[in-house]
Design a binder for these strands. Structure first.
Length: 430
RNA sequence: GGUGAGGUGGGUGAGUGGCUGAAACUAACGGUUUGCUAAACCGUCGUACUCCAAAAGGGUACCGAGGGUUCGAAUCCCUCCCUCACCGCCA
């Protein structure tokens, strides 16, 4: 949620940012609407507060009258009070209406893009921020996509997923299951040594939590919902992890907060991966190790660099060719101020696969969830939140299978071998 | 799921209708003292909205959440949520 104060102080910059995010004109008009409501809201609030003030002081007088036995005066004052209260009731109703309207509008505005975000409307407009510096690998024509490899090596089974749950659910088996476990451990250990504290979090969250990180109300339809208990299955660990600090005022010395968590992620539709939805490219449940940082506003963009470095090192250790995209205004998510996407090149599918997304949300989430810090002068300010996938398993599995396929089996990258237990993934029962 | 007891500021905890935005203790922060540490002493110590050009200073709201009674509610009533204990069930 954008800060109301920012709208009040610098409307032009807000509009400029919203234009960069490709908001249509009718939504841009909301800014003026919000500001108009704000003026109304303030005057109504002042009116109501004055009324309440009168009631409060009269009530004290009544108490005194009663003590000193001045019954007539007391009764008189009571009548005055009930008159004021009646008036106040109307004001209060109006005020609530306006407040709700203002909040709804404010909630429907996306975050403003950072000044370095490239202009553009669609994915094709994204800027290649860092390309793969050498020639992309070329595999022999006999190279197979991961869904065929999966059959050869019997490592996951789409049909069993369908049998047990439905389409988009994968059942990993044998070396596939083992590879999952190895990757989870590898990513968590790497995050640990990069200074991220590991947390293990609930996978079902309440409304308040889903609201705070921005999944509600915008993306209600994307989440699985357990109606009986009014809980949502998390679409990403970002939700429970960031919410650890909901409604907190941190000390400057607590910063930065760096957390990591492994969780399964549940998505009713797995988003916009384009037309290629085969195999592991698009699933309803996948596994992800997330890194989350809560940062001092002055430091958040440096922190974003650190997160990029971390993801870079993971991909390097997995020996996968990758590039980094800086998302354009139109392709960025609702709540992000700056997002870098990591794409791994699959030599078998001969295309780039998105495997990580690293974003700075600045104060967009913290404003919603009232996550702040107190500076040395005692002033309270909003913090910045950042998060990134480090990494998402399903696509990484696809990339490893495809890129590292050899005659001897799937070559396991050196860094992963101690977690997986052997040099090659073969079609053998372990 | 059943029964009982509770939910007050960072923590402990007082407070059963007006003098309570809230005692006391403690933690934290600033200072004095001290050879260092400790102790002692003094001071500060909630958040949000709002009024004022700004500061100073006001106003309003908040004692789990939401309603209600009352001139007046942390305190009385209702609903919900949560915590703890015991029982039941269970990996």
């Amino acid at each position: 949620m954008l800060e109301l104060n920012f709208l009040r102080k610098d409307k032009e910059r807000v509009l400029e940012g919203l234009r960069k995010k490709n908001l249509p004109a009718d939504q841009l008009a909301m800014v003026d609407e919000i500001l108009a409501l704000d003026i109304q809201r303030k005057s109504l609030q002042t009116l109501m507060d004055n009324g309440l003030n009168q009631v409060n002081s009269l009530s004290k007088e009544i108490g005194n009258f009663m003590k000193s036995g001045q019954t007539a005066e007391a009764e008189n004052a009571k009548n005055t009070v009930s008159g004021i209260k009646e008036k106040n009731k109307e004001i209060e109703e109006q005020l609530k209406l306006i407040q709700n309207k203002q909040e709804t509008l404010l909630l429907s505005l996306p975050n403003l893009p950072h000044s370095s975000v490239p202009n553009g409307k669609v994915a094709e407009d994204n800027e290649v921020f860092q390309d793969w510096p050498v020639a992309l690998p070329v595999l022999p024509d006999s190279a197979k996509p991961h869904w065929e490899l999966a059959q050869d090596y019997d490592i996951f089974d789409m049909e069993l997923g369908v049998k047990i749950s439905g389409s988009g659910f994968i059942l990993y088996r044998r070396n596939g299951a083992r590879l999952q476990r190895a990757l989870i451990n590898f990513f968590l250990e790497e995050a640990n040594s990069a200074g991220y504290e590991e947390v293990w979090v609930p996978l079902l969250v309440n409304k308040e939590t889903a609201f705070a990180t921005g999944q509600l109300p915008d993306k209600e339809g994307q989440m699985y919902y357990a109606e009986k208990d009014d809980l949502y299955l998390i679409p990403t660990a970002e939700v429970p992890v960031t919410n650890i600090y909901r409604n907190e005022i941190l000390k400057e010395s607590d910063l930065p907060v760096c957390l990591t968590a492994y969780t399964p992620c549940f998505r009713r539709e797995a988003g916009s991966y384009g037309a290629h939805v085969k195999g592991l490219n698009r699933v309803h449940q996948f596994d992800k190790i997330e890194i989350v940082r809560i940062e001092h506003p002055d430091n958040s963009y440096r922190a974003l660099e650190l997160m990029l470095d971390h993801v870079r090192s993971l991909l390097a250790k997995l020996e996968l060719p990758y590039r980094i995209l800086k998302l354009c205004g139109g392709d960025m998510s609702f709540s992000s101020a700056l997002t870098y996407d990591f794409e791994v090149y699959s030599a078998a599918q001969k295309r780039w696969l998105e495997v990580s997304s690293v974003s700075n949300f600045e104060t967009f989430q913290t404003n919603r969830m009232k996550l702040r810090y107190k500076n040395k002068d005692g002033q309270i300010q909003l913090l910045h939140t950042l998060n990134g996938s480090a990494l998402a398993l399903a696509r990484i599995v696809a990339a490893i299978l495809e890129n590292h396929q050899t005659d001897k089996g799937i070559r396991i990258p050196l860094a992963l071998q101690k977690y997986f237990g052997s040099e090659y993934l073969c079609n053998t029962q372990i």
